[in-house]
Amino acid sequence: MKSLIVVDCQYDFIDGTLACENAENAVLNIIDYINKNDVDVYYSMDWHTKDNKSFIVNGGIWPVHCLQGERGAMLHEKFGELIDDSSKTPNPENVFYKGLNDEIEEYSAYSAKTESGVVLNEAVEESVVVSGIASEYCVRETALALLEDGFKVQLLYSGLGYVNKSDHLKNLEDLRNRGVNVIGTD
């Protein structure tokens, strides 16, 4: 069975401090993909404290985002409402947290962990579909880390939110050239 990784479909990346283009559509398209395909689903979440060094206020480059327990850090509620199979909705076994170390910028979900310590790259199958937000950052770095470790990686085109359309398209071309198969381009 294929694994689907849903990268950082959290409110701060959808309608919050780092809102991305196509984010709401990406969420709905990911849900549609989940409902139409036999996949195991894994969700990653940025999960920061107020002291995270990636924040501008702490010397980084990003606005404050995805603070632990705040609305902006929550996965979009539609994942709980519109997915037909309840085992594929977010739960403690399939939600993986990243960005927990305030000193390190962690775009990739590759080493994200569940509350019980299961690591994402050890949980997913060899064939992985990656989706989520943002194409040029966390999605890209997740796909590259998986590819580097020998996984067969696909990107769900319709399930991607992005910061900048031009950079998003350049990113897709670069990932294709590296061996990532882009699917669902309609």
Rank of each mutant, 00 (worst) to 15 (best):
M1P: 14
K2S: 08
K2A: 05
S3V: 05
L4V: 03
I5R: 13
V6T: 02
D8P: 04
D12F: 10
G16T: 11
C20L: 05
A23H: 01
A26L: 10
Y33T: 02
I34M: 05
K36T: 10
V39E: 13
V39R: 07
D40F: 06
D40A: 13
Y42P: 10
D46P: 12
W47C: 11
H48T: 02
K50D: 15
K50P: 07
D51V: 00
K53F: 11
V57N: 11
V57M: 05
N58P: 06
H65N: 06
C66F: 01
Q68A: 10
Q68E: 14
E70A: 11
R71M: 10
G72D: 05
A73L: 04
M74K: 10
L75Y: 00
H76I: 00
F79P: 00
G80L: 09
G80T: 00
E81M: 09
E81P: 02
I83A: 07
D85Y: 09
D85Q: 09
D85P: 06
S86Y: 11
K88S: 01
K88V: 03
P90R: 08
P92C: 12
P92R: 13
N94Q: 07
N94S: 08
N94I: 04
V95C: 12
K98W: 08
G99Y: 14
N101C: 11
D102H: 14
E105F: 06
E106R: 05
Y107Q: 07
Y107W: 13
Y107H: 15
A109E: 01
Y110C: 07
E126S: 12
V128T: 08
V130W: 13
I133H: 03
A134W: 02
S135C: 14
R140K: 15
E141H: 14
E141L: 11
E141T: 04
A143R: 06
A145N: 15
Q154D: 12
L156Q: 07
G161K: 09
S166T: 03
D167K: 14
D167H: 13
H168V: 05
D174T: 06
R176G: 00
R178M: 10
G179K: 04
G184Q: 02
T185W: 00
